[in-house]
Nucleic acid binder design. Structure first.
Length: 461
RNA sequence: GGCCCUAUCGUCUAGCCUGGUUAGGACAUCGCCCUUUCACGGCGGGAACAAGAGUUCAAAUCUCUUUGGGGCUACCA
């Protein structure tokens, strides 16, 4: 169908498969012995076989109008019968057909469906039987130049020497038709395996209305190919043991058709996220820097500095470099399941005007005086330090020493740490203050603490 | 409606073929620990054989029926 064969769809599919790490030996992008591989480029081939069926009287022209067909269909339905073509035009004599054609009447091509019960062995479902009497003479081409799916794939499978057709269960009922066409053409039928469908949360076939369905979209959402492959594989296949993590190679080594599932599985995003986390944990931070920087730019949190090697915090003009981003990633790593989470969870590190209610600074409704006191202590401590000489651990020790030696903090550390956290991050959940300080640096940290203090001052009467 | 496929925790599933399991694992959820918050991590809990009948000493497992779910029913693929 020309409507669907847009170039961008093709590229979408090819890019998605490549991203997943799936390769192929032949295809529209790399050619091969059995090409061409685009159905739009195989029209001459289909025409030849269409003509063959016509010549052998295994197919015929049908001149019935859409209106007639619709009327018949409704009639059949009303009688509670399966709607199928009456076969009327199949009984036309040769002269009439030629006359009609010569007059330029519109005609589709129908296949004379053998009236029999067929059985075939599906690799997943075992023996499947279908009654072709119920199907009727299906249309296999809109005209000699425009073949339809059920006919075209049969020709393709045979000519391309396809041995196994593995596809969705939604094609199960097409299989007998295709086998009948193959037989009429004198082609052998490939082995068939019909996979269960992936379902949306409402248990119906997963589609656009369920949200994200295309690989491209999952790439955009920051998922890792290993996670998507692993997750989808487990949706329809399961090993005998309890192993969960399989990369593509392990899948290839261990896969077996026998262990394929028969019933449809609901696509559970939470589990996909878990798989992603498993692989995300193993990837090196260096690899994350560029994609994360790109995400920050796309979200207008930072912009590239004219010098091209550093970045500017949007709005404030604070200068940061890749090392800063690197430290930020390390800091938030455990809160990330995928790259795109970073913008949300680490926004405060790339945004200098934090918006939070002053009340958030109060640990268990501590009085404002206490909050001010805590902020002041912190400002003194940090102000006296040269952070270059510290790392997270040694800075944490400085704070711990202070807290342990001073009441009331030795009784309730939150009294000190909570206001710091909020002042530094603007949030109630964040890494520990010492960690944030090591990323922000002395200057920006002090600025944020002072800002918090200024926020409170007017509240004290 | 007709035809076809299918049925174990909320979800993905192991077990079913070759009857005898405390019906196992993972995600999610809940609780506890770690802890200044969150996350990570560790430990633990609750949670399923769709229903009925039959065969059998014994049924998730074999047979039948019912019910549920899904797909197809195009001059789409």
């Amino acid at each position: 169908d020309l409507e669907r064969s847009k170039k961008e769809y093709e590229e979408d599919i090819i890019n998605g498969l490549k991203w997943l790490g799936i390769t192929w030996d032949e295809g529209p992008d790399i050619g091969g012995e059995y090409g061409p591989y685009r159905q739009t480029e195989r029209l001459a081939i289909y025409r030849k076989y269409l003509q063959q069926l016509l010549d052998e009287n295994k197919a015929y022209y049908c001149f019935c109008t859409l209106e007639e067909l619709e009327a018949q269909k409704q009639e059949a339905l009303a009688r509670g019968e399966p709607p199928r073509y009456s076969g009327k035009c199949g009984r036309l004599d040769k002269k009439t057909v030629e006359k009609n054609l010569a007059e330029g009447r519109e005609a589709v091509i129908r296949f004379r469906m053998p009236q029999q019960i067929v059985k075939f062995k599906d690799l997943i479902r075992g023996e499947v039987r279908a009654d072709l009497n119920l199907v009727g003479d299906i249309i296999i081409a809109k005209n000699i130049e425009t073949p339809l799916y059920n006919f075209a794939v049969v020709v393709d499978d045979a000519l391309m020497k396809i041995t196994h057709v593995i596809r969705g269960e939604d094609h199960l009922s097409n299989t007998p038709k295709q086998m009948a066409i193959a037989e009429a053409l004198g082609f052998p039928s490939p082995a068939y395996a019909h996979l269960p469908l992936i379902l949306g949360p409402d248990r119906s076939k997963m589609s656009k209305r369920h949200g994200t369905v295309s690989i491209t979209d999952y790439i955009g959402e920051g998922y890792l190919p290993q996670a998507l492959i692993n997750f989808i594989a487990m949706l329809g296949w399961h090993p005998a043991d309890n192993r969960e993590l399989y990369d593509l190679q392990a899948l290839v080594e261990n896969f077996s058709v026998e262990r394929l599932q028969k019933s449809g599985a609901i696509f559970n995003v939470k589990k996909l996220d878990w798989f992603n986390l498993q692989y995300f944990k193993t990837i090196n931070e260096e690899i994350l820097i560029q994609p994360v920087a790109k995400g920050l730019i796309d979200n207008h949190l930072i912009e590239v500095n004219p010098d091209k090697v550093s970045y500017l915090i949007a709005g404030s003009g604070r200068l940061i470099d890749l090392n800063y981003i690197n430290k930020a990633i390390a800091l938030e790593r455990s809160r990330l399941a995928k790259i795109s989470d970073f913008n949300l969870v680490a926004e405060y590190l790339f945004k200098d005007d934090l918006n939070y209610a002053p009340e958030l600074l109060q640990w268990h409704s501590a009085p404002w005086q206490e909050v001010i006191l805590a902020l002041n202590y912190a400002i003194d401590i940090i102000g006296a330090l040269s952070l270059d000489n510290y790392d997270f651990n040694s800075l944490q020790i400085v704070f711990n020493d202070f807290v342990n030696s001073k009441a009331p903090y030795n009784q309730d550390k939150g009294l000190l740490f909570w206001p710091l956290r909020v002042a530094l991050s603007g949030k109630e959940s964040s890494p520990t203050p010492a960690e944030i300080i090591m990323v922000l640096g002395k200057e920006e940290s002090l600025k944020r603490l002072e800002h918090a203090r200024n926020l409170i001052l007017p509240l004290i009467s």
